[in-house]
């Protein structure tokens, strides 16, 4: 747990991921991210909003070590992830959840979860709502919601402190999406993970502790719920602000 105590004995979350002046340009030199500065803490769920093509997924990829930034540096627990090794960063520090689930299609849910973990997979799968029988099926024979639960279970099993979710509810119906959102929220609040969600969904964003907006390569903080406000819902004001930004 990355907590430290202040002089007044207050528990303060420490930054687990920190972006310093991170910029990214495609091969055609088009800059998609410009000098992003961002600090993310454990035990919080973040939502990143933004129009299509604004660089949300790229930002997530950079945080997850799937790619290297053109400018700036990314730190995990104070260490530059490139210096520590991107592959090791992906293996030990972060876990991905994708819109299209990205499960290995010739493995069962149990085997998918066991890919990155030596922990028994069944309790984790049950925690996200899969029965023993469902855990033994081929993943392609599960519904979209079930597949996404497997993907979440895989992320949880990896024991990574940061979960990066790219449109995790994009392919799901409303009810299932709400359930997935709750699971992700639990991951952040009960398991003390840092959950970063890239989404278009306002409903999902409502569940986040902090909402960030990426616009023309720059990051804006839309709303930050206070620590006591975690149990509350996302306010209408925030949504209106978001709409105003979009305009």
């Amino acid at each position: 747990m990355m907590h430290s105590k202040t002089k007044r004995n207050e528990v303060v979350s420490m930054n687990i991921i920190e972006l310093k002046n991170v910029g990214y340009a495609y091969e055609n030199k088009r800059k998609v991210l410009k000098a992003i500065n961002l600090s993310l803490e454990e035990g919080k769920m973040y939502a990143i909003l933004g129009s299509s093509g604004c660089g949300k997924t790229t930002l997530l990829s950079l945080m997850g070590g799937l790619d290297s930034p053109s400018d700036g540096q990314i730190f995990y627990e104070g260490k530059n992830i490139e210096k520590a090794g991107l592959s090791a960063h992906r293996k030990n520090n972060v876990a991905f959840i994708f819109q299209s689930y990205n499960l290995i299609d010739y493995l069962t849910p149990k085997e998918n979860v066991a890919l990155t973990s030596k922990l028994p997979p069944q309790p984790i799968l049950e925690r996200v709502g899969l029965t023993e029988e469902e855990s033994r099926r081929n993943v392609l024979k599960l519904s979209g919601g079930q597949q996404q639960r497997v993907a979440i279970a895989r992320a949880l099993a990896s024991d990574a402190k940061v979960i990066l979710a790219d449109e995790p509810t994009g392919n799901l119906d409303e009810d299932t999406a709400a359930e997935i959102a709750n699971i992700l929220k639990e991951c952040a609040h009960q398991m003390n993970k840092c959950v970063v969600i890239v989404t278009h969904s306002n409903e999902l964003a409502k569940q986040a502790d902090e909402v960030l907006r990426l616009h023309r390569g720059e990051m804006k903080m839309l709303d930050r719920l206070n620590q006591s406000g975690r149990s509350g819902c996302y306010t209408e004001i925030v949504l209106q602000t978001y709409k105003a930004f979009n305009r």
Binding site: K91, F96, N102, L103, I104, L115
Partner: peptide
């Protein structure tokens, strides 16, 4: 696809 998933999971 499979390769990408493995790499994303940190498998070298």
């Amino acid at each position: 696809h499979e390769t990408g998933i493995y790499l994303a999971m940190g498998i070298s």
